[in-house]
Design a protein around this nucleic acid. Structure first.
Lengths: 192, 192
DNA sequence: CCCCCATCCTACACCTAGTAGGAAATAACC
DNA sequence: GGTTATTTCCTACTAGGTGTAGGATGGGGG
């Protein structure tokens, strides 16, 4: 009988595809086993448990997202870079909703220390540096940026905005304009 | 044998407490049945299925949040009202993490039409009107506000910000300052 | 060629959602 | 107050998910 010859990476990739196709909660060891024509228990040779599988999808997504962001902001700066970075996130969330959902889970500690995470942070900081914020304010700006982008995408993903006028594209542009304004006029003298 | 005399509301309230104590995913018909000393199947007299139970918690939380927001912004306007509204959200999310998690799920259509939802929307709009935005821009401002607040709270809830300096309180203040700035200087002449 | 070992298997134990249909306690009515 | 009707809760079951233990197997290295 031919073996499936699975590896941890193959299982994680299949989980990511499954999540994009049928939703994040559809990531099931059973479903993956069926997909590979293998018994459920067999997957535990490649994956410690379900939770670590989800962590794997998280890290996979983080890497893919970082790559896209890198390409998007290449050669740009200031407002253009901001928009490119944000749009890269949004495009990714739309194209790979399941993977994006995986990113919303708390990151495993191994993921926090991963190359992908470091890469994405570095890209974000590089973009923000274009705004000449005080160094000590970069953290706050990063958090605001992340909150706004992810918060907006979460709203879109939850369907709160769909089927409602006016189009969410306009709201998105407004949000990015707002961020650009805020970053450009970030107060330089702050007591706390 | 004494009956538990359950009602749909009692079950939903217990689910909310359970979620706050042990996490949103701990909301389980089985766990609730154990808590009430009742068989799992018995709960289906009061709750259509698990999903509708979660919708119930969602709507419960929405009502509680709206009440708190109403009290918070009472008598305030402008920046003060913005901060009060945002802090009410944050306090609620911290005090009732499980209920807050329930709010992150897509709202059921019945919830969308609910009194609680309408109340919260009205309060938010009332707060925003203090900024004298063009009427057509209110939607976008609402979306930006919701995205930022919920995005930030999601970051906090996911633990991304914990155990990291500087304190997230400062970032939170920066985010609210940013929103205030943006709303005060919202461009009045826009083509799209 | 044979042995090793990763891969995959069978067989469980346990948990959860949800359905069907019956028993029993409470409420309603005459 | 007794009978009926209703609601609540029950037993019993199906289906499907996670995870463990230990055994079979097939392919690559000696």
């Amino acid at each position: 009988m031919a073996r499936a010859n699975l590896t941890s990476a193959v299982v994680i990739a299949a989980a990511a595809e499954l999540a994009d196709r049928e939703g994040f909660d559809a990531i099931t060891l059973s479903a993956l086993a069926r997909r590979f024509g293998v018994q459920t228990a067999s997957l535990y040779s490649h994956v410690r448990d379900r939770s670590s599988l989800l962590d794997g999808v998280h890290e996979l997504a983080l890497g893919e997202l970082a790559d896209r962001v890198a390409i998007a902001i290449g050669g740009r700066s200031g407002r253009d870079a901001l928009i490119a970075l944000a749009d890269a996130h949004r495009d990714y969330a739309r194209q790979f909703p399941g993977r994006w959902a995986a990113l919303q889970r708390p990151a495993a500690s191994s993921t926090v220390d991963s190359e992908a995470a470091g890469h994405l942070v570095a890209l974000t900081l590089a973009m923000l540096r274009g705004y000449q914020l005080p160094e000590a304010e970069l953290v706050h700006a990063t958090r605001l940026l992340g909150a706004t982008i992810n918060g907006f995408l979460a709203l879109e993903a939850s369907g709160s905005l769909s089927h409602r006028e006016p189009a969410t594209d306009v709201s998105w542009r407004r949000a990015l304009d707002a961020l650009d304004t805020v970053f450009r006029s970030w107060p330089t003298d702050r007591q706390s």
